[in-house]
């Protein structure tokens, strides 16, 4: 019950938010160390979404949104560049909105919500790519991104579920 009280006061929430942000950043970094893309550009596990997705079920929606944007900006400045921030925002924000809607319908468990997130993350990035490169032939790549988004999304969703199941007794 201690954490329940903490979450109500400002300092406790800020501390929790900072910790979760650090966690999301580390997961994003660990992801770059794992060669899981199979040489297919755009395919990745989405480990950072593990934190964002879990948080959707633990803290308030505005806090998750803040966490997401802060993570993208910070990891962009640390490891990437302006272009990478744009792509991350396009994927991250669209995925966040769709996951939120998916969760609100109460029709899916975390895995389903995460699958939606994975697919729309890839779609958001593809749409931005088509706009920036201005080549509609990029859409031919969509089926591959759909497949990878659904599979990695399912995996991340199952992992998040497992993490929350194990964290709940601690709270």
């Amino acid at each position: 019950m201690g954490s329940q009280n903490n979450r109500k006061n400002k300092a406790g929430r800020a501390a929790l938010g900072g910790m979760l942000l650090a966690l999301a950043l580390i997961f994003g970094y660990v992801e770059t160390l794992l060669p899981l893309s199979f040489g297919i550009p755009g395919v990745k596990l989405g480990l950072a979404n593990l934190v964002i997705l879990s948080c959707l079920y633990v803290i308030s929606v505005p806090e998750v949104l803040l966490l997401l944007v802060a993570r993208i900006l910070l990891s962009g400045f640390f490891f990437g560049n302006g272009m990478m921030i744009l792509y991350s925002l396009a994927g991250g924000l669209l995925s966040f909105c769709v996951m939120l809607i998916g969760k609100k319908t109460n029709r899916f468990s975390m895995a389903g919500v995460s699958i939606l997130g994975g697919v729309f993350h890839n779609l958001g990035q593809l749409l931005l790519a088509v706009v920036l490169v201005w080549d509609e032939k990029l859409f031919f790549y969509f089926p591959v991104l759909l497949l990878s988004g659904a599979l990695t999304g399912a995996l991340i969703g199952l992992l998040s579920q497992e993490i929350l199941n194990r964290l709940r007794p601690v709270q």
Binding site: R107, F108, G112, I115
Partner: peptide, 9 residues
Amino acid sequence: MKRNDWILL
């Protein structure tokens, strides 16, 4: 995973 999740996947 729930039934809807499987259907979606």
